[in-house]
Nucleic acid binder design. Structure first.
Lengths: 178, 178
DNA sequence: CTTCATGCAAAGGCTTTGCAAGAAG
DNA sequence: CTTCTTGCAAAGCCTTTGCATGAAG
């Protein structure tokens, strides 16, 4: 699907977002999706996709709304409701991946990004990505054993990241409690 | 911690909940926790723990509240707020494990139960447990590589369980859509 | 008796939705 | 022009909390 070039527009160069090469920019890919659903290309959807794919990072709806509010003026404003609606569409379109971290929903790039899982630091709430082919094998083995048809998985390893561990031990002064 | 017998009461026999043998019943274990926190043993907490550990299954707060409402009369009634408060305590005491499945929080036995992960059927919402020592090794290897101190992990493999897959293909009649 | 727990109802997050006004095609 | 979108405010979930009453130790 990602590698399908049959619907290629005149945009010749491939895009490199991270490590996987894809033939359409997220923007183009999204428009393709919208068209296929009889939906429309609006300035709000364009602004949002543009912003979301500007850098690769994890974010939640609220952060995105804040960032868009600071960034856009008058015309291109994107309301809270529209952000939520667009996020759903982006997930459905396969551009974003949604995951729940405790109570909040966190999003990350999916389109053009390789399979990966996360280390979650419970101290600073940072998410560190890692890849493991071994895990995919394990997943298949387990599924086979249970007659289960896998569509995906989510692994989150929680603990304390290196940076936080160092902060804790180096000079455990009252200041570190802030 | 689970194997610690230093505080053993006169209950001589070990309890077998699933596969791991423990020295205190969940009820006793909880009382121990409550005492250590200066909290009290109340009829509500007793009824709740009793009910929750009667069978090994996954449940959410609402299901538990419904079940308790049907089961208990007048005196032993447990209010919604109390259920939520008790669930937090049981998690903190290490008796239950909490995990989020989409939007809802699901609980399962932790005390006296072996480490495991889940296959989640997105069709019927069933959770199938499995164990994998290989996964633990993988977890450690990844953590080591990132200087990460692991406290736990959660792996959920999603897809379609055997039963649902069979329903889908055997006689795909309109009746199956109900 | 003193402190902790409970039930109630109200308040909180986060997310979704109905609706009228406004764009896209 | 017709249909899809948007923004707004209201409503919905699920969960938490303040407070007065009641139970545990």
């Amino acid at each position: 699907m990602i590698q399908d070039t049959s619907q290629l527009t005149d945009a010749a160069a491939d895009f490199s977002l991270g490590e996987v090469r894809v033939s359409l920019s997220p923007q183009e890919r999204f428009e393709e999706y919208l068209q296929s659903k009889g939906k429309r290309t609006t300035s709000q959807r364009r602004v949002l996709v543009d912003h979301v794919f500007a850098r690769h990072e994890h974010f939640d709806a609220d952060e995105l709304i804040d960032q868009l509010n600071k960034k856009t003026r008058g015309d291109d404003r994107v309301s809270r409701a529209t952000v939520y609606r667009a996020l759903d569409e982006l997930v459905e379109a396969g551009l974003l991946r949604k995951m729940s971290l405790g109570s909040r929903s966190v999003y990350e790039h999916d389109y053009g990004y390789p399979q990966h899982d996360h280390l979650h630091c419970t101290q600073c709430d940072d998410l560190i990505e890692f890849r493991s082919d071994e895990l995919l094998k394990l997943r298949e083995a387990v599924a086979r054993e249970h007659g289960f048809r896998v569509t995906g998985h989510r692994l989150t390893i929680s603990g304390i990241c290196r940076a936080c561990a160092e902060k804790r031990h180096r000079r455990p002064s009252p200041l570190d409690l802030i």
